[in-house]
Amino acid sequence: MTAGIVGYGVHIPIYRIRVEDIARVWNEDAESIKKGLGIKEKSVPGRDEDAATIAVEAARRAVRHAGIDAHSIGAIYVGSESHPYAVKPTATIVSAALEAGNRLMAADLEFACKAGTAGLQMVMGLIDSGMIKYGMSIGSDTSQGRPGDALEYTASAGGGAFILGREKNEIIADIIKTVSFTSDTPDFWRREGAGFPSHGGRFTGEPGYFRHIVHATKMLFEETGFKNSDFDYAVFHQPNGKFPIGVAAQLGFTDAQIKNGLLTPIIGNTYSGASMIGLAATLDVARPGQKILVTSFGSGAGSDSFAIEVTDNIESKRKNLEKVMDIVNKDRTYIDYSVYLKNRNSIRKT
């Protein structure tokens, strides 16, 4: 395939809430939740942040990293399940904030947690067909967890933006192959106008997450001839800290292969951002010639699997890169449950 990654950027809000602070409110045992979900804390958006502001911050970092003129971007897709408007695209807000001009394709996508990687595939098609020179896909969310629900411990905020291009001397990682596995699976949903998503509890696991990721990854193996040991790193969607470890084991990957891309234990599940941020964190440390497997998952349901190989250009481009772990650790500010509610606009002055 012609298209490859020429730049990427991530944004994660500075606010964090610990599992203990949520568990205290609902009189639950924090230690068993931390053990059960494999998570210590999650990111929380500031009062002035939403999926659009996170997408813009990630996109601006990606443009700086890529070192391209934003006017040369021919398509912008933003995947999210928390777009600020029901009708009015986040992608147009991003394009204006990037000063990307008006000659571009843009659209918002929604496919639960995998809309960002679905956008990557769309951009790949446009580049491979010669329709555009550069395209950007963003996964960004300020995800919602119903108070008292298990999701409240994990649903967090963050986003990742990737710019794809076709010039060999600009590509930091080639996308060798991508395949998707898709089915109609009612594991997780949110109806129009509903404030919080609903889910099928344990049903989200085997028929949802595990089935789709395993099938997509095995399809990728069959169609490329690669096996798990051919990859230096693997990134799986990470709704909590345990599922990605479980699916990696099912597919024969080791903990060492997934540790760099597993951020959920310290930032929570950033939904559409999760696989994108995991890939970004892995590219932060990857060396030329190394291979990365990425398999996302979106409820509803589907998985996109990618085989990626890092090129020699990655080292020289790192001078303009803001690394994921630096962003995760910078200005980290812990808040309690009442400030969390205020930041989520659940309580207001009267």
Binding site: G46, D48, E49, D50, P84
Partner: peptide, 12 residues
């Protein structure tokens, strides 16, 4: 006064 700052994109 004197603090170094950079631009950010936020909801007003």
């Amino acid at each position: 006064i004197g603090t170094r700052v950079r631009i950010r994109f936020r909801r007003m």
